[in-house]
Write a protein that binds this DNA or RNA. Sequence first.
DNA 1: TCAGTAATGTACGAACCAGTACGTTAGCTA
DNA 2: TAGCTAACGTACTGGTTCGTACATTACTGA
Lengths: 221, 221
Amino acid sequence: MTSVEEPARPGERIRDAARTRAEILDVATAEFARAGYDGARVDEIAARTRTTKRMIYYYFGGKEQLFTAVLERAYGVIREAEQQLDVDHLDPVAAIRRLAELTFDHHERHPDFIRLVSIENIHDAEHIAASEELGRMGSPALDVIRRILAAGQESGLFTADVDAVDLHAMISSFCFFRVSNRHTFGALFGRDLVAPGRREHYRAMLGDMVIAYLTAERAAD
Amino acid sequence: MTSVEEPARPGERIRDAARTRAEILDVATAEFARAGYDGARVDEIAARTRTTKRMIYYYFGGKEQLFTAVLERAYGVIREAEQQLDVDHLDPVAAIRRLAELTFDHHERHPDFIRLVSIENIHDAEHIAASEELGRMGSPALDVIRRILAAGQESGLFTADVDAVDLHAMISSFCFFRVSNRHTFGALFGRDLVAPGRREHYRAMLGDMVIAYLTAERAAD
DNA sequence: TCAGTAATGTACGAACCAGTACGTTAGCTA
DNA sequence: TAGCTAACGTACTGGTTCGTACATTACTGA
């Protein structure tokens, strides 16, 4: 019989604040996205980590702050993706389509992000309100849209009288809903909006919709 | 001092199963919408009712079944509204716009419904799956869209190659997102999507978007 | 009118869960 | 190498919360 007291491997447990913090954030993201804020269990997060619950309180202070940190990181990811976007060499129509597809792809690839945002809305965005970081964090996408829109309207190509924020809402709504409401929509209408086989179909549909709206012939007024 | 034992008004408490059941459903709807499934408190629902927690278990069996009953009623409301819709006398463009506006108006008037659906999606629509009623309950809106779409495509007015379910998803996404993501969108972009002053603006934007998509000139392929 | 049942109320328990008091150790630095 | 502190672990608690055992009363039909 080996001694129970004997540690499995001495020295394996190396202290690394950054790694521990990051690991907690990873696990917490999955747990909050899985079960919602109130459904998520701090003990469960701790159990799936190589550390203990004590560390969650040590690094983050509490469940609320942990959720806020999770949100901050999740929003940081999409902000980074938007910053990578370079559409200055494209004509307005292609540029808008490219931007819409970026949102489409990001939302599809990050269903946990969508769930976290849904959860935050159920809580009236109070964690965003409590976060300094999320307050200052602007939206690169909005700047891009503003530039494209100005060019398109200038040239007369875009006839719609719409501003960047509303256009962003239009694009986001389609991309977001497709992921966020996947389950109820699927259960009620028998169609999986996120089925891989329909991906290109919806991606094209989004672009067509936005371009059609922006370039539609309008009655003079 | 009046006796504590003395009931305030004898005979005031009249037994009425239907009323008690309905009252529980009303209060539960508000509580679940407010706090989410796990955040909602059965004791809180009971406290806001003229009856006791015991009755919730008597009539519904448990928290899960109560939430399912709440969902069933909420979906019933929009189904009824859709059934009222009569667009057979309108041309396809006007008919689609009318239908879109019905969804827009319903979602705006029933933010609790939107929250409940968001919550149900966080729980992977497992309550809908458990409900016989919600399974059979079709969608009158879908039938209406099918008819309008057939007429529009027949006449060559609608050029888009889209089916009823996808068009319904497009309309719903805009209407749903505007209410469901009101808080995060407002906090991040500084614009209240549900502000009364912008109501007509978004209502028109939705119609323009859908009509533009359906009637856009398309490259022959 | 009386017995049976549907409807209701009270009080409680067992499990759960966020948070913490207290103790320990690794690694850096003087 | 001694000692200091950041990093970490254990064990517990106090309050909460879903659910129920048990008692009671209003209504109804025979």
